[in-house]
Structures are given as structure tokens and as C-alpha cells.
């Protein structure tokens, strides 16, 4: 795990050299502690995915700095994309083993597959899996490398509610064990309150931080719907300006 210090002055899209390029991120400063679980909440299309890509190093075309607690090359990043992005020509197990560093203990994959209830499909090709299963495989892949930083881009969107709830629990269990620094993008406030230590509310065009809120609901109470609802209402009445971001 590692801390993340973001300071993005400007990020244009599609490319800063093109005339129609628009400022999509401006003056965004964010410090995330080591092992912290942070949810980014904002309207769709506001640039949250772009931000994750910047952190992942997939896009270097921006002005500003993104620093981790350790040199970038020493930090392992697990990225759970909005779509599972599994290689269709590799089995579930091969997909996970593909990204493993050499120092991974042998039982890691077996343990993770078992905890996500994927053991029986480990030799199946991804196209034969349901979306929910594919998403779980993508989660296992991200956890298996024991990442310092875990980036998650609406990983549970379009899952049915019971499945999503189940996977959220599994996510928290795994995070409890490994304590990665997590950046989790969502536009579901309840989901964010359930999972995170801290909520960052983002505005659109250009994206910048509107509110930075710590969640006070104790971890033990997180799967209690009433507590979540209560905190949500309290939040919305306290900061009416975040209403239009949801």
C-alpha cells in the first residue's frame, strides 16, 4: 500500500493539440492516505475514468503531478475496469495467472477463486460466464497481484442488487486483509457510503473537487441499510450542493 498525492492542473480531452479539446479536469488536488478507501462520486461523463487512467499511468498527457509514496515502478496497481476486460482466449485461471508477479505464493489464486466462488469455473473461457461472474474474475485478478493501489471503475454497475451486495461484502473482506489504497469510482451514493472511508464529490466540465467528506458510520454497521440511509440523508441536508452531482 502507498499514499497517493494528486495535483492535476489541467487535463484536456481528446488531446491538448486538437482544437476541439476541452478542459475536463482543472485544479484537482487530492491526497489519499496509505490504506485508505476513497470513493469518487460525480455525474457520469465528468472524467472520473480519465482520472483513474491518469493514476494508472495509461494516459500521460496532462499537466500536473501524480506521486505515490514509493517510486511508480515499485507500486503495483490493480485496476478493475468498468468492463471486466478479460482475455476471451484464456481461461479464467489463465487470465489471473497472466498478471501475477513471480513472487506470488502458490495458494493465492486458489484462495481468491474460492472466496469469490469461482473455483468451479476456473477452466472456463470468459465468454461462457455471466457478467456477474466475469466481474468477479476481474476482481480476483486485481486482488491476486496484491496491489499497493487498487483502482475500481464502477465495478458493480449493471449487476443485480443481491449479487452486487454479495461482492461488496467480499471486497471489504479482502480489503480488510490486504489494506490496499483504494480509489473507487461510483455514482451510487449508498454504495459509496457502504464501502469508503472518505467520499470525494466531483463536479463536471471541468472536473474539480466540490466536497471531501469522511464517513463516520462504523465499519461494523456498514451493511445495515438504515444506518446508510440515515447517513445519506444527513449528508444531503448538510451539503445541498451535492444533490445535483448524483
Amino acid at each position: 500500500m502507498t499514499e497517493i498525492n494528486l495535483s492535476i492542473e489541467q487535463k484536456k480531452f481528446p488531446k491538448s493539440s486538437q482544437p476541439q479539446a476541452e478542459n475536463i479536469i482543472a485544479d484537482l488536488n487530492l491526497n489519499i492516505h496509505s490504506g485508505e478507501f476513497v470513493c469518487l462520486i460525480g455525474p457520469s461523463g465528468c472524467g472520473k475514468t480519465t482520472l483513474l487512467n491518469l493514476v494508472a499511468g495509461l494516459d500521460e498527457n496532462y499537466q500536473g503531478t501524480i506521486a505515490f509514496g514509493a517510486p511508480r515502478n515499485d507500486c503495483r496497481i490493480g485496476y478493475v475496469f468498468q468492463n471486466p476486460r478479460l482475455l476471451p482466449w484464456r481461461t479464467v485461471r489463465e487470465n489471473i495467472e497472466l498478471v501475477l508477479p513471480h513472487d506470488t505464493p502458490d495458494h493465492t489464486v486458489d484462495d481468491l477463486l474460492a472466496s469469490m466462488k469461482l473455483t468451479t469455473v476456473q477452466d472456463t473461457y470468459p465468454q461462457r460466464l455471466s457478467l456477474g461472474m466475469s466481474r468477479r474474475v476481474a476482481l480476483v485478478r486485481a486482488f491476486a497481484i496484491n496491489p499497493d493501489i487498487l483502482l475500481m471503475d464502477e465495478p458493480f454497475v449493471s449487476l443485480d442488487a443481491p449479487t452486487a451486495r454479495k461482492i461488496r461484502k467480499q471486497l471489504i473482506t479482502l480489503w480488510d486483509q490486504q489494506q490496499h489504497t483504494v480509489l473507487f469510482v461510483t455514482h451510487d451514493l449508498r454504495e459509496a457510503i457502504t464501502l469508503a472511508d472518505r467520499l470525494i464529490f466531483l463536479s463536471s466540465s471541468p472536473m474539480t473537487i466540490v466536497r471531501d467528506v469522511k464517513i463516520t458510520v462504523p465499519r461494523a454497521q456498514r451493511f445495515n441499510e438504515n444506518q446508510i440511509e440515515q447517513f445519506k440523508n444527513q449528508l444531503l441536508s448538510q451539503y445541498p450542493d451535492i444533490n445535483h452531482l448524483l
Partner: peptide, 12 residues
């Protein structure tokens, strides 16, 4: 492109 990004972010 999605798969290439995946490969890049996992540093294959």
C-alpha cells in the same frame, strides 16, 4: 484498445 490498456496497467 481496452485489452491493451489492461495489459499496460498490469505491466505485462
Amino acid at each position: 484498445k481496452d485489452l491493451l490498456e489492461m495489459a499496460q496497467s498490469y505491466r505485462l
